Simulated assay, not measured.
Amino acid sequence: MRRSDLMTAVGVRLDHLAIAQGFAASPERWPVAPRFDADERWYHRLAVTDDYEVWLLTWLPGQGTEIHDHGGSAGAFHVFRGTLTEDTVGTGGGTARVVSRELGEGTGRRFGEHHVHRMTNLSTQPAVSVHVYGPALTTMTKYRLGPAGLEVLTVERAGAQW
């Protein structure tokens, strides 16, 4: 995949979804095969550049993330196999609003640098997804929904917690 093929029409911003789809289209080029762990979600960084990083994640039924952001990084994800449910948290007028969407095999979506969400495998089958973040993740804030809206639980740092 050529870098120029991943630029948007404006020509200045990488198309993170196109990158995720490109990696998903060539699993034979992944440095590792997906693995599944009954105790926790498995993940492996497939690539890193000056502009973005690519992660491979696996999800057994019932596994998911907490509500989190990406520390100011934009990105995208692509469901390689299975089905995932994304709960996107938006805040407006002082209240938090959750929108759920089910994403099946071959689907994905882009998100901006202020995206807050949770992803879960609510299906009965394992799932595999490819995620792209640009720039590379440095922090992730985990939240919970409280009476006052989003409440910070922890801030994790790359190299320390993952």
Rank of each mutant, 00 (worst) to 15 (best):
F80R: 02
S73F: 04
V132A: 06
V98R: 04
H115E: 14
G108P: 04
Q161L: 09
V79H: 02
R109C: 10
F111P: 03
L60M: 11
T83V: 14
A160K: 08
P61L: 11
T120S: 07
A127P: 06
W55I: 14
R81I: 03
V12F: 07
T154R: 14
A33D: 12
V130Y: 02
A127Y: 04
L57F: 15
T88V: 15
L122R: 15
T138D: 13
P27S: 06
A18T: 05
V132E: 06
E102D: 11
T88G: 03
D15H: 05
P31C: 08
V10G: 12
V54G: 03
A160D: 13
V89F: 12
T85E: 15
E102R: 12
Q63M: 07
R97T: 15
Y52P: 02
T124Q: 11
S73I: 01
A18E: 11
R157L: 02
L137E: 08
E113C: 10
H44M: 00
A76L: 10
G92I: 00
Q21T: 13
E151Q: 13
D51I: 01
H78K: 02
G22C: 10
S73Q: 08
L60T: 03
V128N: 02
T8K: 11
L57P: 01
H131Y: 09
T8H: 10
L17A: 06
A160R: 12
V116M: 10
G134T: 07
E105Y: 01
P31K: 03
A160H: 09
E105N: 03
Q21H: 04
V116T: 14
G146L: 06
D37H: 11
T8E: 13
R3W: 12
G104D: 11
R101C: 08
A33N: 12
G112C: 03
T85S: 12
T107S: 14
Y133S: 09
H131R: 05
W55L: 14
H44R: 11
V10D: 15
A18Q: 12
G75A: 05
P135W: 09
V98N: 02
G92C: 04
L153R: 12
V130G: 04
W59I: 09
Y143F: 15
L6K: 06
G62T: 01
W42Q: 05
E66S: 14
R13G: 00
T139D: 09
V98D: 03
A38L: 05
V155N: 05
A160E: 15
G64A: 06
A74M: 04
T120A: 09
E53W: 00
A158I: 00
R109A: 13
W162E: 08
H78G: 02
L150F: 10
A25Y: 02
A158Q: 14
G72V: 07
